[in-house]
Nucleic acid binder design. Structure first.
Lengths: 254, 254
DNA sequence: CAGATTCATGCAAATTCCTGCATAAAGTTG
DNA sequence: CAACTTTATGCAGGAATTTGCATGAATCTG
């Protein structure tokens, strides 16, 4: 049995809050066999750490971050047209595409129509909808959609990606660095991108200049496994990558 | 159990208002099992915060400036609020939901938030996105997205639905008829809906009056396998169904 | 205009919160 | 080992919040 000390209790309570459930002080007091005051103090401590929102009778999870859609749509507007043009040209007539989620890749979709027999495979519901609106055949990879992330992830999704042989994987980036390679903020999404890379003959990364040199939390792919990076960064930023043998296709910013 | 405190209630009410539905004080009072006065005070508080327009008997959403994204939601807005309210009430606190695609079921999503540990499983990317915007955990069922249809279909999808045990399957309808039962325009989607029915303990159909008596191309479920139909059709339309032993929950059109 | 419904206000009961204090266990220091 | 400090816990009493009810006013409906 666990020790019934503040640390243990608070850890468990924080865990529950993080999972989205509410905490009813009287219930928890009974569960741990301590007085209501003790639980109240635990909640007080959690609030001080910013892990709980205290309400009458217990606590609730901290308010979630602002909804990702607007940010996503706003960002989509800001993707450089030059990047989009170049990426579409690079993709050419390849019939089977693996598309990542994210604003940058999403903005490519409208220009992918018009190729006969093209199939887009994607774990992103946004990309799937965009494809359908442009009459592109689309296969949706299922899985859990994380609260913050934009693509479906999970073992099921990984397996499924393993069953697929695509021509080109088109990935977005949270960060790309000369040593750390391509990186992603979410661990599960990083795995998904690795699986997409493995299932495709070529891997292209499409990303704006602001991601160059950044390192996100999780390593995703080493530079050597990326066939081309399309970006609007200028030469001073891409030079270190070129020295390491990476293929960067830079486009002039307008 | 959820905390029944002003904060929780007001948050949920604000959410419903934001989703465009109106609030009937007496109904909500019953739903939360509190007195009318309490709800009245909640509405008062929401009005003070500028989140509600108080009217006799309840509250209405604040008139919002039109928004470019709104074009897509128009279809959802045309779903009778009474149907939405009733369906949400019928769903209650069920933690695991299987949601069909379509405008009607999509319009339910904003009101499904606020239940702890709720998971929505859906083959519809639209539903998945709507869930994510409302911070509802969602599992996306993968598969091919047909050009016209709104949900992912395919053997893979069917298999996957077979691995799932949900509390309630919430289905839309292309047509529902006393003899032909529930029917769907697309064969693959019909199969998907059958699989969803099989994976859930209860099956609820939510549909507008215009679908009553229609027969779509593909038979999907016999009436006997549907636990409840929620519709705004009047008694003259639903009577033939009731005679056959079906459960229809009719709501008055406003 | 009469009846019914809904709203506003005040009030009492119940619940919960806050503060201070006493006790006990664990750790620290000389 | 003894004395001290720190930490955790439970309890009591007063303050604050929330709730349901009662009363009369206001509003809607036919």
């Amino acid at each position: 049995m666990n020790l019934n000390i503040p640390d243990t209790r608070q850890r468990l309570l924080a865990q529950r809050l993080d999972a989205g459930s509410q905490i009813v002080a009287t219930d928890v007091a009974q569960e741990f066999d301590v007085s209501l005051d003790t639980i109240r103090r635990d909640i007080l401590a959690l609030e001080a750490k910013g892990l709980a929102r205290r309400v009458r009778g217990g606590a609730m999870p901290i308010a979630r971050p602002a909804d990702p859609l607007h940010a996503r749509l706003d960002a989509a507007d800001s993707v450089s047209p030059a990047i989009i043009r170049t990426a579409v040209q690079e993709i050419g007539d390849a019939p089977t595409l693996l598309m990542d989620g994210g604003a940058t890749t999403l903005s490519l979709v409208p220009l992918l129509a018009g190729v006969t027999n093209r199939l887009v495979i994607t774990p992103s519901p946004w990309a799937a909808i965009a494809c359908q609106e442009h009459a592109i055949a689309v296969f949706l990879i299922g899985g859990t959609l994380s609260a913050r992330g934009g693509i479906a992830v999970g073992d099921l999704a990984l397996l499924r990606a393993g069953e697929i042989a695509a021509d080109i994987a088109i990935l977005g980036a949270c960060g790309i660095d000369t040593k750390f390679g391509l990186s992603t903020d979410d661990h599960a999404e990083a795995q998904m991108k690795q699986a997409m890379h493995a299932a495709a003959a070529r891997t292209i990364v499409v990303t704006g200049a602001q991601k160059i040199g950044r390192r996100a939390r999780h390593h995703t792919l080493p530079l050597g496994q990326i066939d081309a990076v399309i970006t609007d960064a200028d030469h001073t930023m891409t030079a270190p990558f070129l020295e390491k043998g990476a293929t960067f296709i830079s486009v002039e910013t307008v």
